[in-house]
Design a protein around this nucleic acid. Structure first.
Length: 467
DNA sequence: ATGTTC
C-alpha cells in the first residue's frame, strides 16, 4: 500500500476518493505495526475529506484512533475548509510540560523518591474519574476556560515567567463558555488539577545525555539534572466536548453538503455556526488543559518545597499535541488538525515565543512508561509536515490486547529500576511492550531530516493513574 | 483518552 521514497519517508498514493496523497515518516522496522491496525485506512479517509490541503501526514508513532489516526496531521484551507472534532481527538490539548528542578538526580535517594511520588499523588489525583482535592479551584473554571494558564497565574498559582515558556503564552483567544454543555462544564470543574489515566503520567527524570550543548543550555537543561515531566490534558471536559460536537457536526454535515466516510471524521465548514461553536469549545478546552498542567505544576512546587526544601521548578516548555490551529503554510491560511502530533517551530520561526525565536522551541517527546523521553529541536525542513513532529512512542498493541497478553512479571522486567506508584497489574496496558520503540521513532524523525536530538531523559520514578 | 456500555 505504501511506496518507499527513502529510508524514512513513505508515500500513501492517492486512490479512491482521496483528494491528496499521504506522506508517512516511518522506517522499515516501524512499518509492520502500521499494517496491523486501521491507521493507514484512517489516513486515507482523512485524505478524502473535501478541501484537505496538500497532503495528510503520518508521524512515526502513527496508530489507530477515532476518526483521524493518532500521529496524524490534516490541514484544510480556510475559511471554507472543514473543521473536525474527531481530527483533534477526545483529549483536547493533551500535552506535555517539562520542568527542571534545583537538584541533581544523584542527590535524591530511591527512598526519598518513593516518598516524593506518594506525596505528589496526594496533591494530584491520578486515575480515571478522580476529582480534584482542592474544591476552591472549581470556582476558577470560567476564568480558566477563557484565560488558560494566565488565569491561574492571576490567582497566585505560578510565576509570571512561566507564561514565557508555555506555547501560546498558555492562553488561546476566542474561547466561549456558551459553547460548552452543562455536562462538559461540570466534568471540567471536577477534573481541574487531576492527572487522569491511560498514557497520562508525572515522571521524575534525569537528563541522561546532552547531544546539543548550546541548545540544551538555552533550554535550561544540563546533564544529571533532576526533571519532572507532566503529561495530561483536558480530562473529562475535552472528552465531553469531542463527544458532544462529533454528534452535532455529524448531524449538521449534510446541511453543508459534507459527507464523511466515518462518524469519527464528522466535519463542517470552519466558518459555519456549528464549526465556529466547536472551535470556541475546543479553544476553551485547550485553555483548560494549559491551566491543568499549570495547577499541577503549582502542586509539584509545593511538594518539592515541603519534602525537599526547594520548590524552584522552572519550565522548559509546555506544548499541546491534540489541537487544531489556524496557520499559514505556503502563504495560504489553513486549519491544521494535529492529533497525537506536536507543533514544532524551528529556529527563526516568527511564531515562536520570544525566548525561543532565534533558537527554536523545545519539542518534548515522552517515551512509553519506564522508557526514555527526548527533547528535540525541529530543523528547517520541518515545513514538509506543516511544522509537525510526533508526540511520543505510539501504541503498537491495543489496550485490550496488552491486558490480555502481557504478564505482570514481563512488565516489571521492562520497568527495571524505575519506581512506579501504582500496582504494575493495573497499568499493563501502558507497558513499554504495548508501545513502539521510542528510539526507532526518534530515529525516523531525525533520519527524515526533520529534527535533531537536543537531550535524552531517563525515568527514575513514574506516577500513573489506573483506568 | 474517558464518571471506559450516560
Amino acid at each position: 500500500m505504501l511506496k518507499k521514497l527513502n529510508d524514512y519517508l513513505y508515500r500513501l498514493p492517492r486512490t479512491g476518493k482521496m483528494q491528496v496523497e499521504g506522506l508517512i515518516i516511518t522506517s522499515e522496522k516501524l512499518l509492520p505495526a502500521l499494517y496491523r491496525d486501521e491507521s493507514l485506512k484512517q489516513l486515507q479517509n482523512a485524505a478524502s475529506l473535501p478541501g484537505v490541503y496538500r497532503a495528510v501526514y503520518g508521524m512515526p508513532d502513527l496508530h489507530e484512533g477515532f476518526g483521524l489516526p493518532i500521529g496524524g496531521v490534516m490541514a484544510t484551507v480556510l475559511p471554507e475548509g472543514l473543521i473536525s472534532a474527531g481530527a483533534v481527538g477526545m483529549d483536547i490539548n493533551c500535552g506535555v510540560r517539562l520542568l527542571t528542578t534545583p537538584f541533581l538526580a544523584e542527590e535524591i535517594s530511591r527512598e526519598r523518591l518513593a516518598e516524593l511520588i506518594k506525596a505528589i499523588e496526594k496533591y494530584v489525583p491520578a486515575g480515571v474519574g478522580k476529582k480534584n482535592w482542592e474544591k476552591e479551584v472549581r470556582s476558577l473554571l470560567p476564568k480558566v476556560l477563557l484565560k488558560g494558564a494566565r488565569a491561574l497565574l492571576e490567582e497566585g498559582y505560578g510565576f509570571a515567567e512561566d507564561l514565557n515558556k508555555i506555547e501560546e503564552g498558555g492562553v488561546l483567544a476566542g474561547a466561549e463558555i456558551k459553547a460548552l454543555s452543562e455536562t462538559a462544564l461540570s466534568r471540567g470543574a471536577e477534573g481541574l488539577g487531576t492527572l487522569g489515566g491511560g498514557n497520562h503520567f508525572i515522571e521524575v527524570q534525569v537528563v541522561a545525555e546532552v547531544r546539543r550543548w548550546e541548545v540544551a543550555q538555552s533550554f535550561g537543561l544540563y546533564p544529571g539534572m533532576l526533571c519532572l515531566m507532566v503529561h495530561t490534558g483536558s480530562r473529562g471536559l475535552g472528552h465531553q466536548v469531542c463527544t458532544d460536537y462529533t454528534e452535532i457536526l455529524y448531524k449538521a454535515g449534510p446541511k453543508y453538503n459534507v459527507s464523511v466516510p466515518v462518524k469519527g471524521l464528522a466535519a463542517v465548514p470552519f466558518s459555519s455556526p456549528e464549526g465556529q461553536r466547536y472551535y470556541q469549545a475546543m479553544l476553551a478546552s485547550a485553555n483548560f488543559a494549559y491551566a491543568n498542567r499549570q495547577l499541577i505544576t503549582h502542586y509539584l512546587r509545593q511538594v518539592f518545597k515541603s519534602y525537599l526544601g526547594d520548590g524552584k521548578l522552572d519550565l522548559v516548555y509546555d506544548l499541546a499535541h491534540n489541537i487544531a490551529k489556524e496557520e499559514f503554510h505556503d502563504g495560504i491560511k489553513v486549519l491544521v488538525h494535529r492529533k497525537g502530533a506536536t507543533r514544532a517551530l524551528p529556529a527563526g520561526h516568527r511564531e515562536n515565543l520570544p525566548l525561543f525565536r532565534e533558537i527554536g522551541q523545545p519539542v518534548l517527546i515522552p517515551g512509553s512508561m519506564g522508557t526514555k523521553s527526548y527533547v528535540l529541536r525541529a530543523t528547517s525542513n520541518i515545513s514538509l509536515t506543516f511544522n509537525s513532529l510526533n508526540h511520543g512512542a505510539g501504541r503498537s498493541m491495543s489496550r485490550k490486547a496488552s491486558l490480555k497478553n502481557l504478564t505482570v512479571s514481563e512488565v516489571k522486567k521492562a520497568l527495571g529500576d524505575v519506581i512506579l506508584n501504582e500496582k504494575v497489574e493495573y497499568v499493563r496496558d501502558e507497558a513499554p511492550q504495548a508501545y513502539k520503540d521510542i528510539d526507532l521513532v526518534i530515529e525516523a524523525v531525525v533520519g527524515a531530516g526533520l529534527a535533531e536530538v537536543v537531550a535524552v531523559l531517563k525515568p527514575l520514578a513514574v506516577i500513573k493513574g489506573k483506568d
